[in-house]
Computed example of a mutant assay.
Amino acid sequence: MNKLKVGLIINPLAGLGGSVALKGSDGCSEQAISLGAKPKAQQRVIQALSELVEYKECIEFICAPGLMGTAVLDELGFSYEVLCTHESADLSEEANSAQAISSQITSAQDTKQAVQLLAQHKIDLLLFAGGDGTARDICEVLPEQMPVLGVPAGVKIHSAVYAINPQAAGKLIIEMIKGELVNLKMADVRDIDEQAFRNGVVKAKLFGEMLVPEEGRFVQMMKCGGIEKEEWVIEDIAAEIIEQMEDDVLYIIGSGATTKAIMDNLGLDNTLLGVDLVMNQELIASDVTESEILQALETAAQVKLVISVIGGQGHIFGRGNQQLSPDVIRKVGKDNIQVLATKTKIKTLSGRPMLVDTGDIQLDKELVGWYRIVSGYQDELVYPVSDGIS
């Protein structure tokens, strides 16, 4: 049997800004590290490739050196051919730590160079880990007919070239190895202005398309952007949540237009794309980091986490709200998670379940189940959550 030739590129800086509330990592990796951010991209790829361990003999990897590729393959025992890339960055086999990441100055140009070199090897699939910025860099230099598949590791993932979670990426590759019928389709690559994003303004733009394996169970849809036209429904949802609020309970208010309506109706400043803390209908802290949430949870007698669904994609965790880390979610508890969504937003899922991709496989499994969704004033519906695998 012919081996599947897979090119591997990891952006080791991807996702660094998420847990420390920077809304992205472009141009701020050093700041993120100084704030205590820990690299996650390597672990995300390990989760994806762990699905493939029993198929080692069926895959031929060609990859960038060090933390851009070979470090993960060495850890899992995969054989590979390493690309001879740039000389400007020290990509030796260092520990996967913030210090190692900061010492290895990878750039968009490093990613583009690796893609160009992989194209010369006539690979069957380019597997890459990153966010929308990484996808955009790859799209700029990728040969039009080279299939790609993204392992979601960034903070913002609007593009439709990513698997719904790392494990799904591995399972899709298994289908290709087995010779299952996996169609290819062109999918949008979108990115936003991170500076505007940090100021609460979403400016998403189409930068191109890339060819991806078409498997609805494993590949995410494009994020639905823009503000809901049914503002009155969102206002009703906000009224319902405010009516339900209890005294002396810490409310962790997630990002999005639906949760923003709660804050607006309370007359509180809101971080549209961040996480805020509220108690007794007063703002306790705004745009909080993971560590700040954990600190607040230490003294909170009771807590509720209020989050909304990303329309089109369906994710409730793992897309733009990495401050809500596995540690945070476990301390809050599944029973204290309140999901908000208009019926229109749920309909955009076309019957597919909502999704969780926290980065912790066991936690994702624990979060699977049916949830009561606040969809209006005194109006609820029941809808399932999946980890995309179970």
Results as ranks from 00 to 15, higher is better:
Ala169Glu: 12
Gln145Asp: 15
Val182Thr: 13
Ile173Phe: 07
Ile157Asn: 10
Ala153Lys: 09
Asn183Met: 12
Leu149Phe: 06
Met176Pro: 00
Pro152Tyr: 09
Met176Lys: 12
Gly200His: 07
Gly154Arg: 10
Met146Phe: 04
Gly179Gln: 07
Arg190Ile: 15
Lys171Cys: 11
Asp191Trp: 01
Tyr162Glu: 13
Gly133Thr: 14
Gln145Leu: 12
Asn199Arg: 14
Asn199Met: 10
Ala163Cys: 05
Gln145Lys: 14
Lys185Ala: 15
Leu181Pro: 00
Lys171Ser: 09
Ala196His: 02
Val141Asn: 03
Asp193Cys: 05
Ile164Asn: 11
Pro143Ser: 12
Pro143Thr: 13
Val155Thr: 15
Lys178Gln: 15
Gln167Arg: 15
Val161Leu: 10
Ala169Tyr: 04
Cys139Asn: 08
Lys178Tyr: 04
Met186Trp: 13
Lys178His: 11
Gln195Phe: 07
Asp191Lys: 07
Val151Cys: 12
Leu172Met: 12
Asp193Pro: 00
Val141Arg: 03
Asp193Ile: 06
Ala187Ile: 04
Ala153His: 08
Ala168Trp: 02
Arg198Gly: 04
Asn199Ala: 14
Leu181Gly: 04
Phe197Lys: 08
Ser159Ile: 03
Asp132Arg: 00
Cys139Lys: 01
Asn165Cys: 13
Ala153Tyr: 07
His158Trp: 05
Ile138Thr: 06
Gly170Met: 04
Gln145Arg: 11
Ala187Trp: 03
Thr134Asp: 04
Arg198Ser: 14
His158Ile: 03
Val148Gln: 11
Ile138Gln: 03
Asp193Gln: 06
Thr134Leu: 02
Asp137Trp: 00
Arg136Asn: 13
Lys156Ala: 14
Gln195Met: 12
Gly154Ile: 11
Arg190Ser: 13
Gly133Asn: 14
Val151Arg: 09
Gly150His: 09
Lys156Thr: 12
Glu194Phe: 09
Pro143Glu: 15
Glu180Arg: 04
Glu194Ala: 10
Gly200Ile: 07
Asn165Gly: 08
Thr134Phe: 01
Glu180Lys: 09
Val141Cys: 01
Asn199Trp: 01
Lys156Glu: 10
Phe197Ser: 11
Glu140His: 05
Leu184Ile: 05
Gly200Trp: 05
Asp137Ser: 13
Leu181Val: 13
Arg136Thr: 10
Gly154His: 08
Gln145Val: 08
Val161His: 08
Glu140Val: 11
Pro166Val: 12
Val155Glu: 08
Ile138Ser: 02
Gln145Gly: 03
Lys156Trp: 00
Leu172Trp: 02
Ala153Arg: 10
Val161Arg: 08
Ala160Cys: 09
Ile164Tyr: 02
Leu142Lys: 04
Ala153Thr: 10
Glu194Ile: 14
Lys178Leu: 15
